[in-house]
């Protein structure tokens, strides 16, 4: 297992190098002049030129790139021009918010999607199967920002069940002592149920908004894969040996059916990382997605590069986890690895 982990990480290095090059070039290719933006509308040509020199933007591209890589190797992601803060610091403080949201969304999507898919497969062409199909279609066709606004309108404005969509905690609560950065976990560690409830109330709507989008692909893959497995020889044999319905469905069929679902989970997760950006905007969530959008609008290179780098690293780690999970589920993969 450890050997595989190391090998997969090593294999991911070229990917990360690619990410570094592409993000650097992309940010340079974007329209807009950060020096002009930073100097403000009233600045003279000379002032803008001075700022450009100060930021190193007057250098030729290869030189800028070398500077960038050298900083990167020292773990320095640069300063944000708009906030004046080190990008690394801002990303690390904001990352837990995004991660907590995405993981909870994935948890929601996974539990709902797998359950729906299994039920739909077991009761083929029943009302449940049809419901699964409707949810699948709706989930993919509604854009996340729309689902988000709809949920806010219904559950906050009309019903008043949800708190105002204003970040991770309501205005009167203070964040729990920092351990993992996940408020739900940290508040429980501190034994602070009040904060836990507040954090949970805040995260439910955005997590569902994010998750609904992913329910569809998970449910559909689960249904298809479950149908295929339920029709296979070894399920007939398991029933032929008298195993109970639950053992057949859970221990025999579902575990086999999960293999393609795990692959889908991986793809869906990277999908969610992207969808995060919009959901964070709608719910005023202080994560890295909203941070990156603001930086992008301000032509603020360093945070955008930092954001894309973070996403790249997350993506590599995620794929590694999927690979390892595969080995836990399927003994045949262990042999090849």
């Amino acid at each position: 297992m450890l050997g595989v982990t190391v090998r997969r990480l090593a294999a991911a290095l070229p990917t990360l190098v690619g990410v570094v090059i592409v993000t650097f070039l992309l940010t340079r290719a974007l329209p807009g002049d950060p020096a002009a933006y930073f100097a403000g509308p009233a600045a003279t040509q000379q002032a803008i030129a001075e700022i450009r020199a100060k930021l190193g933007l007057d250098q030729p591209l290869p030189v800028q790139f070398l500077d960038y890589v050298q900083d990167l190797l020292r773990g320095d992601l640069g300063l944000s021009i708009t906030t004046g803060q080190p990008v690394l610091h801002e990303l690390t403080t904001r990352l837990p918010a995004s991660a907590e949201l995405t993981l909870l969304g994935l948890l929601f999507a996974g539990s709902v999607g797998i359950t729906l898919g299994v039920l739909a497969a077991l009761k083929q062409n029943s009302w449940l199967d049809n419901l699964c199909r409707v949810v699948a279609t709706l989930g993919v066709s509604l854009p996340t920002f729309f689902t988000g606004l709809l949920l806010i309108y219904v559950f906050y404005y009309l019903l008043g069940w949800a708190p105002a969509p204003l970040g991770r905690l309501d205005a009167f609560a203070s964040p729990p002592p920092h351990v993992t950065g996940f408020y739900l976990i940290d508040s429980l560690l501190a034994g602070d149920l009040e904060t836990f409830r507040s954090a949970l109330a805040q995260i439910v709507l955005p997590a569902i908004t994010l998750g609904i989008f992913a329910v569809a692909p998970i449910a559909r893959i689960t249904r298809g894969s479950m149908l295929a497995v339920m029709g296979s020889d070894f399920i007939r044999a398991a029933r032929g040996h008298g195993l109970s319905g639950r053992t057949v469905v859970v221990a025999y069929a579902l575990r086999n059916a999960l293999l393609p679902v795990v692959t889908t989970l991986g793809m869906v997760f990277s999908f969610l990382l992207g969808a995060n950006v919009l959901v964070e905007k709608v719910f005023a969530w202080p994560g890295i997605g909203s941070y990156a959008v603001e930086a992008l609008i301000a032509s603020d290179y360093a945070p955008v590069q930092g954001f894309v780098m973070t996403m790249g690293v997350l993506y590599v780690l995620l794929n590694l986890m999927i690979d390892l999970l595969y080995q836990v589920i399927d003994p045949r993969v262990r042999l090849e690895a």
Partner: peptide, 24 residues
């Protein structure tokens, strides 16, 4: 029937490998 299967009446299935759960 489920009580009888495997205990009182059993079956050996064709294609032995496919009749076994591949990941157990």
């Amino acid at each position: 029937i489920a009580d009888l299967r495997g205990r009182e009446m059993s079956m050996i299935f064709q294609n032995p490998r496919a009749a076994l759960n591949p990941i157990r």
